[in-house]
Computed example of a mutant assay.
Amino acid sequence: MSNTSAHPPADRSGHLPGPGDGRPPRIAIAGGGLGGLVCARVLERHGLPVTVLERESSPTARTQGGSLDIHPESGQEALRACGLFEQFSALARPEGQEYRLLDRTGAMVQHLVPEDGAEPRPEIDRGRLRDLLLGSLAAGTVRWGAAVETVTPLGGGTSRVTLADGRTEDFDLVIGADGAWSRVRAAVTGVQPWYTGVTFVESYVEDCDRRHPDLARLVGPGSLMAKEGGQALFAQRNGDGRIRVYAAFRAPEDWHAGLDLTDPGAVREYLLARYADWDESLLALVRSGDGGYISRPLHALPVPHTWESVPGLTLLGDAAHLMPPLGVGANLAMQDGLELARALVTEASLEDAVRAYERVMLPRAAETAAACAEGLAHLLPPTGETALHFPEMPGMRTV
């Protein structure tokens, strides 16, 4: 493999030739999440081969989380560029945009629905959206069970990827789309996320309409948030008939010391005690959980998280700008994937493409991450104040 990062201009079909030998560049995307898959799909639509290295053993190796609202200017634009917008629209749930904001007594503070004429932000389960993107890729694009362990720059823009099983392969561009604990980031900035002081504990209620009609009516067709000071309960409709529930609170990262997180009964009793003065209608979200609980401590990267462009390497999504989950992360990752792919099929070289992408992505990410950090502080005040601060929701009106 040649050790030069200068590439001839793309040909008329959008194909960037490889470094000096007439072949397409070898591009690897570490991570098969939404941002990485959007990038791969757009590259393939323009005739550029790509390899997605995914550490999971199969598409069904683990649950993919809850429901996402997909924004017009970012996630929806990415799906249009992928040629998947119609399929997405058939799967999405416009009714899922409704939001109910309550206090700890169960009293409604705000009941929000989209404003007339507002651009829709329909909900879709993350797993269904991922499956849609996976199904659009060429056979063999995603290598399952290929966990990236390290990335080593070799000079001239070439990097060696070492997998967890010891296999190695060289690429002309490695894109880190491998999430919060990105292994690719170590070769770009080496920065690690920090704990925000907030933990989410996730559970779910199956077949809620039939088994728990009172909860179904409480949550409605979209999402519910109840809060008081530094604690909150979130409930979110999913398209498979379940309601996903999150208990959110400020606590040390080792808050569960002495608590067996694999014992659902013990975790349930802990949460019920923590929220003991909340209304029973809300505690039912905790009491009715099916299966176990998952602790999800919220981590974030510094704001801003920036770097000098590194030949042959770049980052997108949480690997680049991990921030509190206030409804923008998945959309930003998809926008990153689209814009990076567009740069790769329009710029004259890989290096030019990465620089053009990072010039736009990094300041946007810094601005959004700062807003999310501020939003988390208002949502769950670290001082324990009891005033109700709910997030602003553009395009929504009170009913």
Rank of each mutant, 00 (worst) to 15 (best):
G317E: 08
V174P: 02
G18C: 02
P325I: 10
T314K: 09
E374V: 13
Y270K: 09
A81I: 10
E280K: 07
D254Q: 11
G140P: 05
A92M: 04
R167M: 01
R397S: 12
D277G: 11
A356M: 12
D207M: 08
L163D: 01
G66M: 14
T386L: 13
R126T: 15
G75N: 00
A369E: 08
G140D: 09
D277C: 08
V188C: 08
A369T: 14
A370T: 14
L315S: 12
G337N: 12
T141W: 00
L112C: 08
T60F: 08
R287C: 06
F249R: 10
A348W: 02
A232T: 10
L271W: 04
L380I: 15
V42W: 02
F234G: 09
T346I: 13
D172M: 05
G75F: 02
G117N: 14
A10V: 15
D103P: 04
D69R: 14
T158A: 15
I29P: 02
R250V: 14
A377H: 06
D116L: 09
R217H: 07
P17D: 12
L380N: 09
D352W: 00
I175F: 02
Y195K: 15
V142W: 01
D290A: 08
A251C: 13
Y270I: 05
V50D: 03
V38Q: 04
H71A: 07
A164K: 06
N331W: 02
V188P: 06
A164Q: 06
E367S: 12
P391Q: 13
M225S: 10
L332M: 15
A300V: 02
R104M: 03
L338D: 03
V109R: 12
E169S: 13
A300P: 01
M393F: 10
G258E: 11
S57K: 11
H321F: 03
P122Q: 06
G166R: 06
G36W: 00
P193R: 15
P394E: 09
C372R: 04
G106E: 10
